[in-house]
Design a protein around this nucleic acid. Structure first.
Lengths: 347, 347
DNA sequence: CTGAAAGCGCTTACAG
DNA sequence: CTGAAAGCGCTTACAG
């Protein structure tokens, strides 16, 4: 670590093994193992602990994860399999996971092809790495029922996970109902929905609950009032721009968006079109991304706790790994409607 | 894989080992190993190959990565360490890496805290996993000089990497010069620069080369004409909105942006402010993200080959891993100015 | 072409 | 408290 380290930047000759440390300290590798893993107390004399510690730091010994994993049967690695990492929601999710895993487990990400649910063979290969547990983001139901993992698995954002697969989800259906109720309370009668076309379960749920709630409230979702684009401000803007003339003619005054990203596109085009928000058009989204409080106007959104989702999933996984019982196999985190200027004129 | 698999969703009793396969096929584990690793040809009789293949598929055997890694000394894992994953540029980078690694190596991501260069101890722990190689995205120079890895490492987007660390970079300086020359050719005399405040070397390079080129062309970057925000459309929009009155008063007619994301913010605010682009204001960015061709107006940008960056780095790493010589330790991929409506009125 | 055996680096009963 | 030894699952010279 010393910047003047003569070895800096070069290939160290060969890695330091426990045997080398044992020799240097004059003890057995068993003792080195105990000390290196913090299991020395009460089992190794203070004198030997010191000698081993000294040798470890002198030689720069790091426990070899492979040897250790083989001996123990598992590694201290947690692998998270995720289809889509390039969005701020995911970054917050990871932050939550990392927080709970701390330094006890090493988090590694395995990215599947964009928008694809992971495949069973792919995950089986990952299993060959002997992770302590697996976190699987947005898997589809079929995958989950086919997997059958020998190690603990927790699904994230998998509302359709079978009961035997622990999962932690977001209550997006309730969020959708809250959004619709909010629109209804404001007097909107005809609404539209800007969906995401990625086909994950959480997105499907949002749309279905939205549609259902609209009818329950006696409101209308006219012909052609549900369109879908990718999760991209530009695509959403273009989609809205194309649909708006007709929607306007149909008397639509409010738009629910599957994600805040979609809503940003709507806001952008609406401002360019000179629409008065929220008077002529009300817009709301899902996710409550950080920027939603500073858009113009600020965006009404369903706050979904990405970090809580990550920490919750990691917590469940730790329980499983460590053999503790789960309070519940499926956890559902509530969302929260955050009302801002895109639906209600603010002071 | 059969959906009717009675084991589906349950914990398989215990993993299948090479010894079990050997017993089932009536051969030794050595033979199983040869067949399972595709090294059988010319060394195992066709008859035994068949028997082993049969047993492998009957039992669903997968080579244990841990055992294999220990025996071989390395795993077939490539770990990519990255500070910031939540942007589309990174997704394309990954795609390039995956393409070159194919199924020969398993790509795993290790995410550092947002915006942080990885730390040496962190990476040392990763080394305990015995990866075949390491890909390190946007490391700082100090990290690189301290690391001294026993395994192949390739730095990505590290223009200040020391010569002994192979790196693949983007020629952002040339890109900045091209951008400025483009502005100059259009007759702009006073320009501004909207920087990113993340402090990575590539961003620093863009800004310095831009500034330098401005002076070389006899143009001006007036007092207060360089501001910085996070890489976020909203932040950039707000930053621009706050600065524009003064910039306008100073006679600034063109803005260079450190990333397209910044430029989107400028475009957004400019349209709202009713500015005529490109007549009253010209805007250009870096990255040429997919959406840049469909903004309104389409954005002039320096196309940086994210996928090529990923595939180039992966290719270098493979060479290193496989013991082949490198053509060059440092690779620099050219950028390309793509002129669109945000700087030049289009037909 | 084949299999017995050594060895990768570690952990963990076990005997002392 | 301590160390010799077995064993984790695999790969690879080696002898046949």
């Amino acid at each position: 670590m010393n910047p003047k380290d003569p070895n800096a930047g070069e290939r160290p000759p060969r890695p330091v093994t426990a045997a080398m440390v044992a020799r240097a300290a004059g003890v057995s590798t068993a003792t080195v193992s105990l000390v290196a893993n913090g299991k020395a107390s009460g089992r190794v004399s203070e004198r030997n602990v010191q000698k081993v510690r000294q040798a470890i730091s002198d030689l720069g010994y790091v426990v070899d994860g492979i040897g250790s994993s083989l001996a123990r049967g598992v590694s201290s690695t947690v692998i998270m399999v995720a289809p889509d990492i390039s969005n701020p929601f995911f970054a917050r999710l990871i932050a939550g996971v990392r927080k709970v895993l701390g330094s006890d487990y090493q988090l590694l990400l395995s990215v599947t092809d964009p928008g694809q649910s992971p495949s069973v063979p792919e995950v089986r290969r990952l299993l060959g790495l002997r992770p302590a547990g697996l976190l699987i983001d947005a898997p589809n139901r079929q995958f989950l029922s086919e997997l059958g993992s020998p190690i603990p698995v927790v699904a994230i954002d998998a509302p359709d996970a079978p009961p035997q697969v622990p999962a932690v989800n977001l209550d997006v259906a309730q969020g959708a109902r809250d959004m619709v109720e909010h629109f209804a309370g404001l007097g909107h009668r005809k609404v539209a929905y800007l969906d995401a076309n990625t086909g994950t379960a959480t997105l499907r749920q949002r749309q279905q609950a939205f549609t259902h709630a609209v009818h329950e409230h006696g409101m209308q979702l006219p012909e052609g009032a549900v369109i879908a684009t990718t999760i991209d401000v530009g695509e959403a803007a273009a989609g809205f721009a194309a649909a708006w003339p007709q929607w306007q003619a149909q008397g639509i005054t409010a738009i629910g968006c599957a994600t805040d990203t979609h809503a940003y596109g709507v806001l952008q085009e609406a401002r360019v079109a000179g629409l008065q928000l929220p008077d002529e058009l009300a817009v709301a989204g899902f996710d409550d991304l950080p920027y939603s409080s500073t858009t113009n106007p600020p965006l009404t959104s369903i706050n979904l706790d990405a970090e809580g989702l990550g920490s919750g999933a990691a917590r469940q996984l730790r329980r499983l790994i460590e053999g503790e019982p789960l309070d519940a196999s499926h956890l559902v985190l509530p969302g929260q409607l955050v009302v801002r200027g895109s639906t209600v004129a603010q002071a």
